[in-house]
């Protein structure tokens, strides 16, 4: 009893921790030009593969570029790709899910079958295939990830709307003459969006992981633009001699994913108590 009462009052610890982590990350990303000690693409032939020191707190890579600066700028890339990709999938998912749930019938069948078809494909390989054909650029990656992850959100929204549709306050809105658009935007969506936030937060984490994987394979963000994934490309060759090139980008990815997962779980607990 007492534990649930505590969680009830304001934000719970998990949510707070997550927000702090991601907040710091966001600050790093925004303030990158001001706080990073060096230019991320600055090649310094005199300091190749240097271990962490005062001059280079996280060491340097095989071209002498400061790892700390590259990781800070990498935060920018990863976060923006994650957020925009999820933004795209949210837009598509919310619109398709609402139409499917509210209108039902043919629209519902078409949309849900499309979602089912897309879910059949192993997303990662689909993205690989598309990126291999098109040139790998940041925008392409954002759009591709967005276009292949709307299905979960669409299903969530559709089922929330299906259950909310029959509630009296929606019938009341119909009775006072509200248009379909009004009912969906003003009444259904604000009530249906709860679970979507959790899904979207996890989606950002997933998108960041996806981008890292693509960049690691050379199909994502292209060097010299730093991304945590493409910094890791070097780690394969230098694992024995330069542990810092493997550890720090990996740690950055780990902490970021953890932060987003904390937020998602914290939100979920919050909603379970408040619902």
């Amino acid at each position: 009893m007492a534990k649930s009462e505590r969680a009830h009052t304001g934000m719970n610890k998990l949510l707070c921790t997550g927000i702090v982590i991601i907040g710091l990350l966001g600050a790093l990303a925004i303030l990158a030009p001001f706080i990073s000690p060096y230019e991320p693409t600055l090649i310094d032939a005199t300091s190749l593969l240097m271990p962490p020191s005062c001059a280079h707190p996280l060491g340097t890579d095989s071209l002498g570029r400061d790892l700390l600066s590259r990781i800070i700028y990498g935060a920018r890339i990863s976060l923006s790709i994650g957020i925009i990709a999820v933004g795209i999938s949210l837009c598509i998912g919310v619109i398709t899910g609402s139409i499917a749930g509210y209108f039902g019938g043919l629209a519902d069948s078409v949309i849900m079958r499309s979602a089912d078809i897309m879910l059949c494909f192993p997303t990662f390989f689909l993205i690989l295939a598309v990126v291999a054909v098109l040139e790998p650029s940041i925008i392409n990656i954002m759009v591709i990830i967005g276009l292949t992850s709307w299905m979960g959100i669409a299903r969530l929204i559709r089922s929330e709307i299906l259950s909310l549709k029959e509630r009296e306050f929606i019938q009341a809105a119909k009775a006072i003459g509200a248009s379909h658009m009004r009912i969906i935007c003003r009444h259904l969506l604000p009530n249906a969006l709860g679970p979507v936030f959790v899904n979207a937060t996890l989606g950002i984490a997933g998108a960041i992981l996806l981008e890292s994987a693509l960049s690691f394979l050379g199909l994502g963000v292209q060097p010299p633009v730093p991304s945590w994934g493409n910094i890791l490309i070097e780690s394969k060759a230098t694992l024995g001699v330069a542990w810092w090139i493997t550890l720090f980008p990996g740690l950055a990815i780990f902490v970021t994913i953890l932060g987003f997962n904390f937020i998602a779980e914290g939100l979920r607990r919050q909603w379970d108590y408040n619902a």
Binding site: F169, A172, A173, P190
Partner: peptide
């Protein structure tokens, strides 16, 4: 019709949008 005819429902706890 939607202006001249109105309806009041049975369940007062469900007839108002909880987020409005």
């Amino acid at each position: 019709f939607r202006k001249d005819v109105q309806i009041i429902f049975q369940n007062p706890y469900a007839s108002l949008d909880p987020k409005m």
